[in-house]
Design a protein around this nucleic acid. Structure first.
Lengths: 138, 138
DNA sequence: TCTTGAACCTCTAGTCACTAGAGATTGTAG
DNA sequence: CTACAATCTCTAGTGACTAGAGGTTCAAGA
């Protein structure tokens, strides 16, 4: 059995974040010492690793909740799990697409001014003021 | 002179968002009718277009504040403006990089399970539980 | 001129996933 | 036994809005 600080070190999840996950119902309520401090074991460690990994991949707390529920019912169909993963993938792809358009536009804008002139002549500011200067939708 | 609803229509920025921008100091306080309703003119329209365009490109409210201040002093050096644009570009590129790693990992994970089996055997859940299954850092 | 109802007003609270800080208590090494 | 680091709970703040309550104003049609 180890403390929340130890769990934090091992999983690289900050202490307040661990407490937050507990409050959100992602982590079961931890056992307590007589002095009311949380104590964890291997199960808690595994669960938190799962959560951290999923968060790193951008899954929402809500999605992780569903995934954990599934994990706790090994006999259930895992269709929901794959659905969640696929939809997360779609989400990520959508974001990449959008960011690439932004990148293109920002490159163009940045190139237009070297920062040596005055505000009045600045292509960055002009571009923002006038959408017509943009090369495409973004 | 036109109403906040009209401004909203023309800029495609929602009414509460316009009020929010005013509160944040991005938009000057609008003139009011005798009945306390906001009225805008061309200047307000241009300013809000600028803000919307910058937001679309992912600039923060704070960054936009700086850009607007510069815009209002046409004689000042525009170095800050280009700095902001360049740093926004770096930011976008960083995000793309990270999302591409996530994409790769999510593709791998999604492919591992067709959702037809049971939770116990699900590769999606197994992958999340065990980081070792990941092909690289993400 | 009057009436209706859409649009407007302010204010508070909620979103997401944490983060920060106050003030009090507990655990542990020396 | 004493320090003091770590823990506890609780509240509030972050960014950029969004939602809703409860009340007022504007403008078009009768």
């Amino acid at each position: 059995m180890f403390s929340i600080g130890e769990l934090s070190k091992r999983t690289k999840v900050k202490v307040p974040t661990i407490r937050y996950y507990e409050e959100m119902g992602l982590l079961a309520e931890a056992e307590r010492t007589s002095g009311n401090q949380r104590r964890y074991d291997k199960t808690g460690l595994e669960r938190l690793s799962f959560i951290r990994h999923a968060r790193d991949l951008g899954f929402s707390i809500e999605a992780i909740s569903s995934l954990i529920e599934l994990q706790e019912h090994p006999d259930r169909s895992c269709e929901t799990a794959t659905d969640i993963a696929v939809s997360q993938l779609a989400d990520v792809r959508e974001k990449i697409k959008r960011l690439k358009l932004l990148e293109k536009e920002l490159i163009r804008i940045s190139k237009g001014c070297d920062g040596q002139g005055i505000s009045e002549d600045c292509y960055v500011l002009a571009s923002l003021a006038d959408h017509e200067l943009c090369s495409r939708e973004h």
